[in-house]
Nucleic acid binder design. Structure first.
Lengths: 248, 248
DNA sequence: CTCATTTTGTTCTCACGTTCACAAACTCCT
DNA sequence: AGGAGTTTGTGAACGTGAGAACAAAATGAG
C-alpha cells in the first residue's frame, strides 16, 4: 500500500538505464566493468602512495586480483589511456577512472538508522577518502537525537526532506531494521534521493530511475556455507571431524 | 612475501572448484543461483511467519524481487519440490533450500578486528537466526582484550589457532584495517579456516580451496555514483544545479 | 634508418546467465 | 469421468561476460 509503483526491484542488478544508450552511443560501460573500476582505482591509489609512476596492465591486474586481459578490456571502454610498449601512467589513469566513476568531486551521503551498523558506517573512513561525504545521520528514535556520532549530530528522521533539499543529497544509505527499510526508501525517493545503498535484509521496491544496491551480510555467509558444505561434510560443531581431511 | 601461493584471488568470483564436477555430476548449482537461494530462503521465512502455507513461483518471485521464470529455473537445480497447478509448500521448500545451502545446522564463525564494524557484526542478529554462531571475537589490540562485546569477550588474536581447533571454525570474518587483512587471512588459512568473508578494502590472495568473498562499502557507493552521474550531471555539492537537468 | 622487443587495444570464440515459451502434470468443476 | 484452468519444470533463443590470441604502436639498440 505504501510502496511506490514499479516492479523491477533490482537487488544487485542495475536499473534498466533505457535512453542513456541513445544519448552517448558507444560510451556504454558494461555493468561488470563498472563494478571493477573502483577496485582498479584503489590499486592505483596504493601504487601512488608507494611512489609508483608507471605500471603495466599485468602489474595492475595482479594488484586488483584480476586477469590482465580482462583489465585491458575494461580500461578500453574508457578510452586509450595507456602507451603501447610502456604501460599506464598511474596518476593519469587514476584520474581518468575517478572521472568516469564520478568521484572527482564529493558526493553527499546520508545515513538512516544509527544503530550498531549505522554507527560503524558513519565512522568508516573509506567514505571520506573515496569521494563521499556523510552530511547527515538520521534516526527515528528520539533517544538518539542530538547525540554526536563521528562528529555529526543524529537528527530526527523527519529532517530527511530538509536535508536532501539543502545538501542536494542523491545517495542514501539504509541501515535500519528490515521492517523499516521500505518506508525509509519510500520517503527517500519522495524526497529526491535517486540512489540507495541498502544494508537492511529486505527487498526494496522503488520506481524506475532509482538505483538500489544491496549489501547483505548473512547472504554472504550463506554463500560461503554452501561452498564450505561441498568441500567436505564438516558440521562445524564437532571439532574433530576437521582433521579427517589432511592428517591421518 | 607473506602471502601463500596461488593467484586467483577471486574477489567476488568463487574458487575454481575443480574436481567437484567429477564427484557428483549433474548436481552442480550455478553460482548465480547459489547467490539467490538465500534470498528465497529469507522470503520463505517471512511467509512462514505470516502464516502462508503454500505459494506460487510468481508470489515467491515478487517477494524475492526476481523474475518468476528465473526463480523456477533456480529451484529446478535443487530438484522438483513443487506441485504443478498448485505451487510450493512453503515450509517444505524452505527446508530443502536450507539443506542445500547447508544452514540446517549452525556454522561456527569467528570475527577478527573488533573496531566499529566488528562491533556491529558481532551484534548483528541476522547471523544467529540464519544458521551462524559467532564463537569468538579476536583483536590484536591488548586494550580490547577481555571486554565484552555482544556477550562475548574479546580475545587476543594469537588465540586464533586454539579457537579454530577447539570450535571447528571453518568461516572467518575479517573486519580489520586493510593493512592487516592479508596477514590475518594467512593466519586463518594456516589455522584451517577455508572460507573468509572480507570487509577490509584489500585484495586477499589465498591458496586454492579457500573461498573468499568480499564486501566493500565504498565500492558499492562508487558504483552508485557512476550511475548517478549518468542520470544527470548533478555534482551534489552545489544544491541548485540539481534543477538544471530538467528545465530550460 | 631498420629491426627486435615490449605492451596495449581489439577481435574472436566460448561459456554462462537470463528470458521466453510451452509441454507435462495437477486441481477443480460439471 | 472428462475437460477447463493453473502452475511447474525445462528446452531453446538470446544477450552478456571471460579469456585467448593477435595486430598495432611505441621504445631502444645497432
Amino acid at each position: 500500500m505504501n510502496a511506490p509503483t514499479s516492479a523491477e526491484g533490482g537487488p544487485i542488478e542495475s536499473t534498466p538505464v533505457g535512453d542513456v544508450t541513445a544519448r552517448v552511443a558507444g560510451r556504454e560501460i558494461p555493468e561488470a566493468t563498472v563494478a571493477r573500476l573502483p577496485v582498479y582505482l584503489r590499486a592505483l591509489h596504493a601504487m601512488l602512495e608507494h611512489g609508483t609512476v608507471t605500471c603495466s596492465s599485468e602489474e595492475l591486474a595482479v594488484a586488483a586480483g584480476v586477469n590482465s586481459a580482462k583489465l585491458r578490456k575494461d580500461l578500453s571502454y574508457l578510452g586509450s589511456y595507456g602507451t603501447r610498449g610502456v604501460g599506464y601512467d598511474v596518476d593519469y589513469l587514476r584520474y581518468q577512472i575517478a572521472r568516469e566513476i564520478g568521484v572527482t568531486q564529493d558526493w553527499a551521503v546520508i545515513i538512516v538508522g544509527i544503530g550498531n551498523l549505522g554507527h560503524a558506517l558513519a565512522n568508516y573512513s573509506g567514505f571520506r577518502t573515496r569521494g563521499f561525504r556523510v552530511v547527515a545521520l538520521l534516526d527515528a528514535d528520539p533517544a538518539l537525537h542530538g547525540r554526536q556520532v563521528a562528529g555529526l549530530p543524529v537528527r530526527p528522521f523527519d529532517d530527511l526532506e530538509t536535508v536532501v533539499r539543502d545538501s542536494g543529497v542523491a545517495i542514501g544509505v539504509i541501515a535500519t531494521p528490515a521492517l523499516a527499510a521500505q518506508d525509509v526508501a519510500d520517503r527517500m525517493v519522495a524526497a529526491g534521493v535517486t540512489s540507495i545503498l541498502n544494508f537492511a535484509p529486505s527487498v526494496l521496491s522503488v520506481p524506475a530511475g532509482v538505483d538500489v544496491r544491496k549489501v547483505d551480510l548473512s547472504i554472504e555467509l550463506q554463500i560461503l556455507a554452501y561452498h564450505e558444505q561441498r568441500k567436505g561434510p564438516q558440521p562445524a560443531d564437532d571439532a574433530a571431524s576437521r582433521l579427517a581431511g589432511e592428517a591421518s
